[in-house]
Design a protein around this nucleic acid. Structure first.
Lengths: 215, 215, 215, 215
DNA sequence: GATGAATGAGGATTCATTCAT
DNA sequence: TATGAATGAATCCTCATTCAT
């Protein structure tokens, strides 16, 4: 976690640096990220970096924590339908999750790397991250089978895997498909997510899975 | 592509070096792979490496090319049923593809990195790789819709995406689930792939998708 | 020498800081002592350090000066027997000196480093320090020869050297031999010096030299 | 220990680098020695240093090993009188040892630092070094007491300490006294050791101790 | 064709010191 | 007077690449 030095920085400067960290750690593997490049881009002295963070790992963990918070905040901010059946929930999650990847592609990328790449993470945290959504999906699916809303012969583990794999790649794929770059997104914001085309792409994916899963 | 020097090397030496390249480039991100480590493991002089390959990128591209060839050869070697309906083909592909990841985890990893990570690839090649199987899936799905074997309201593009995402992660996920390491695999070979448990996991995934896609 | 800022500090704070300086400069070579560590341990701002002292060297010289004063005060405080013959004086000095090293191991270490290591000292001061006790010994020996209490054929210069070398290492050697650490000493104080074992070790050394020197 | 790269270097270059290492590691504490300074003085690339040695510690240990070898070779080369009584042996050792410090002041300094300062040494080696000569002295003294050549009431442990302390500082002190610098020594060689003045200083020290020890 | 020493830019990190608040 | 953020040179070490042998 960053030192107080960093937290006390003027808002403008701190968020400028955070943005650069975000871009650098999102664009490359952890090992390849260069402190020299970061301080050069940020226009700060090398020593200053180490006054803000313990070391490279500390800066990364700060970013990861931020990404998690952003994601949680984002998910909570989305309107939920607690009355809806299970598949509605899944549909909502997929939409919200994808929209998160879409609105915060850099944060999403940070999370992705934490789950699948070689980053300096306590092992426990790492395992938690990797299996996090998968276990969530699995539980939801089991419940769905029990209450009869999903096919009784679904294998919860592997059904969850399909959701997870789809879910983990959807945002990236959509951005790629509609030729949206993180830059262009920064300009238009999540507004562009409302594009009809994109909505219907998302719907296409969801409805395919729906038909495969529903009773 | 490697220099003629490399191709003229005695078969034994050349394949020993290739194997080491494979292991190194599969285990780490491109930028992090160390030539020093490679030549040390291979027991050759550093200068020799540069007599065999233009540079690091050249060695990587050689490997990637090999990976593609291996995959094509593997796929062609599997018994096909051209008479079967479209979904049979998809099922076969998924089984065969997973088996490839399974029998050649290192080659599969090379391909994966080429598609999703930061490697020195001509842009065209990169795009090709990324969309390779996806386009194939898309064509198959279109044909399936046309001949009535798949649901008429499937969106081919996004249906292909689901297959692709599932497909790209299945081998890894199975290996993880059954706690198979590349090492243990090297010993048992693809034989272990025949394990009943594994076969049924694969079947679970396929049958879920089948139900979502079939007319 | 410290700035007036330091001297005007509340007694408690100043001596707390002095103690920390003492511990740090005693434990490590001058160049390796870290201002960062000092201010951290002392709980003061880095800027404050530079308001108290010109720079690192200034802090060190302050400490060295203190060490000298402490030693002089210590030596003067010990009961002397001006009536005793010369060797009694030498014996007293050796005992007192060793007891100083023993009661003030940190101050003694500061002095030792000044004499034998690479510290930022005006050359004159350095030479003075190195030869300080030696010249004192030499004078005492000359007087002893003159009044017949010491062997007439002693070479005062080299006899003084033997005393000096022995003297300079004795405290350390005793501490080592009886497995006394500066920490344990801080607890027990000079009291432990009274241990019979230690007293007899000291006596053994002195009596050997006595037999070599006495007429 | 250095890599083969270093040992295969042209004699002239290797010994030039060795000399610079020697000067740097003799003049300063281990921690303070700078690889940058070494490669600059040696006119080699920084990378070359690491092609010769594993790391800083490796270079230091190489030097220490060399120092030990030099000392052993030097001691063995001196004429011995195996028939002589014990004190003759001690006298010979002191003369030879001092002459070693004198002819190889840099090597001697390396050894000194290994024994008394903070260097990266296996603990066992360090303890061995520290007590090496002291234990040797102690054994010799015990034997001397037994065969009646030394005073029966000597405390072997503390008598050995006096010899050790004297012995460890004598070379340095003589060089200081006669204003001999390592540079001037390099020119004149050990020849200067034969100076009458120096011989008689050495004799003065030895004879004082002799009188203190002999029966 | 094979070798492996040489290179120097680049990596992360720590340091004493300054200076605006 | 006290603060502590900013600085940038210095630290050790690794890297891909070249080139003379």
């Amino acid at each position: 976690m960053p030192k107080s030095t960093y937290l006390n920085l003027p808002e403008a400067k701190r968020s400028a640096i955070t943005q650069i960290l975000l871009e650098e750690f999102a664009a490359q593997e952890y090992k390849v990220v260069s402190i020299s490049r970061i301080v050069e881009r940020a226009g700060i002295a090398k020593g200053s970096f180490y006054q803000y963070f313990e070391d490279k790992a500390d800066a990364y963990l700060f970013l990861l924590d931020l990404a998690m918070q952003e994601k949680v905040a984002f998910m909570n901010s989305a309107p939920q339908d607690p009355q809806g059946d299970l598949f509605t929930t899944l549909r909502w999650m997929m939409a919200a999750g994808t929209r998160f990847e879409f609105s915060n592609p850099l944060f999403a990328q940070i999370g992705y790397r934490a789950a699948f790449e070689d980053v300096p993470l306590p092992d426990e945290t790492k395992q938690l991250m990797e299996s996090g959504t998968r276990i969530f999906f699995e539980d939801q699916i089991k419940a769905g089978i029990d209450d009869g809303s999903l096919k009784p012969d679904l294998d919860p583990q592997w059904a969850a895997f399909i959701l997870d794999a789809t879910f983990n790649n959807l945002g990236r794929r959509i951005m790629e498909n509609f030729e949206i770059s993180p830059q262009s997104m920064a300009q238009k914001g999540a507004a562009s997510f409302a594009d009809l085309e994109i909505q219907s792409a998302l719907e296409a994916v969801i409805s395919i899975l729906e038909q495969g899963f529903k009773a």
